[in-house]
């Protein structure tokens, strides 16, 4: 099934004003009705937790109310409807999208993707031995910049039984497992993307079920660190990073948020195809990152400024 990846995450939150301010500071653009979009149109939607238009919450009280996947075309949508209709309720909403639950009770949506094709360079670097990427007189960094998230990258769920969900997403929706942490869960990608993962599960007790984090792709590591630095300077609290993961190779920086989950910036994730063989690693700090840095205030060596 040609599912491309998450188009939109829908949250029902406690403090709408704080969440909206957070997403603007994160770099998404407000387009009204609680929707905040990245450069390719993928988005986060914020509503109050008591908004009757939202799907029912999970028993855990997680603020994530719905994950809406973008698919290639109407034929894919029809195929998903036919598949899921075998054993569960599939609603067709007024906008033509589908709504159904996965085998853990997460509410999913499916729509013909709203993603706009992007044509922008990745972060350009120069290195001895490589043909020049950036070219003469093209500068690598700005002192001050406000990088914009490009595309909704992935969502991570706390789940009570990762094997059950891995089976659902692979057998029913055509996702592929690219790598896994033993006893924790798999990294999965749908058939319509080569990204290392758009979905990752962390097995936890049932009362924790919900969203652990979500993230948008940036142009490269400089944007991850510059956008994260902007967040720190606005008073937001770093949770983990900046650093670089091993599985997926993506640069990361996670922040705490008023969404009851972490919100990350990521960049430069590995791409895979059918020739890849999934790896398995033990969970823990050593296999979670190649290195881990930590923010500190700007500083420079040298004595006091000359009078």
């Amino acid at each position: 099934m040609n599912i491309i990846g998450p188009d939109t995450l829908v949250f029902g939150v406690d403090d709408v004003d704080a969440c909206e301010e957070y997403l603007k500071d994160y770099g998404l653009e407000s387009v009204g009705d609680g929707q905040f979009i990245a450069l390719d149109g993928t988005s986060v939607i914020v509503a109050h937790k008591d908004d009757p238009s939202l799907p029912e919450p999970l028993a855990s009280g997680s603020m994530l109310r719905k994950t809406i996947y973008g698919v290639a075309d109407q034929a894919t949508l029809d195929a998903i409807a036919a598949e899921l209709d075998k054993d569960r309720t599939v609603k067709v909403l007024d906008n033509g999208s589908l709504e159904a639950q996965d085998d853990a009770g997460f509410v999913l949506g499916f729509q013909v993707t709203i993603r706009k094709p992007l044509s922008m360079p990745a972060e350009q670097i120069n290195a001895p031995g490589a043909s020049s990427m950036r070219g003469f007189n093209s500068l690598g960094v700005e002192k001050l910049a406000t990088p914009k998230p490009r595309s909704l990258s992935h969502v991570v769920y706390f789940v009570p039984d990762f094997a059950k969900l891995e089976a659902f997403y692979s057998q029913r929706l055509g996702f592929v497992t690219t790598d896994r942490f033993s006893h924790v869960g798999p990294f999965m990608r749908p058939a319509g993307t080569h990204d290392h993962h758009t979905l990752f599960f962390i097995e936890t007790p049932p009362h924790m079920q919900g969203c652990e984090h979500f993230t948008f792709h940036m142009a490269g590591p400089t944007e991850v660190v510059q956008a994260g630095t902007n967040m720190v300077n606005k008073g937001y609290q770093s949770f983990w990073g900046p650093g670089r993961h091993i599985m997926g190779s993506n640069w990361f920086w996670y922040f705490k948020s008023p969404f009851g989950c972490h919100i990350e910036y990521d960049a430069d994730m590995d791409l895979h195809d059918e020739h890849w063989t999934a790896r398995e690693m033990l969970p823990g700090a050593d296999n979670s990152q190649t290195f881990l840095l930590e923010f500190r205030e700007k500083w420079a060596p040298g004595g006091p400024p000359q009078q």
């Binding site: 919900g210 652990e212 937001y236 009851g260």
Partner: peptide, 23 residues
């Protein structure tokens, strides 16, 4: 540490202390 920004320890209604990592 709990907050998502300086002094952000409570929910919107001020009824509970909230850890912003996992809610």
């Amino acid at each position: 540490a709990l907050p998502w920004r300086k002094d952000g320890y409570l929910d919107g209604a001020g009824q509970h202390i909230v850890c912003a990592s996992h809610g």
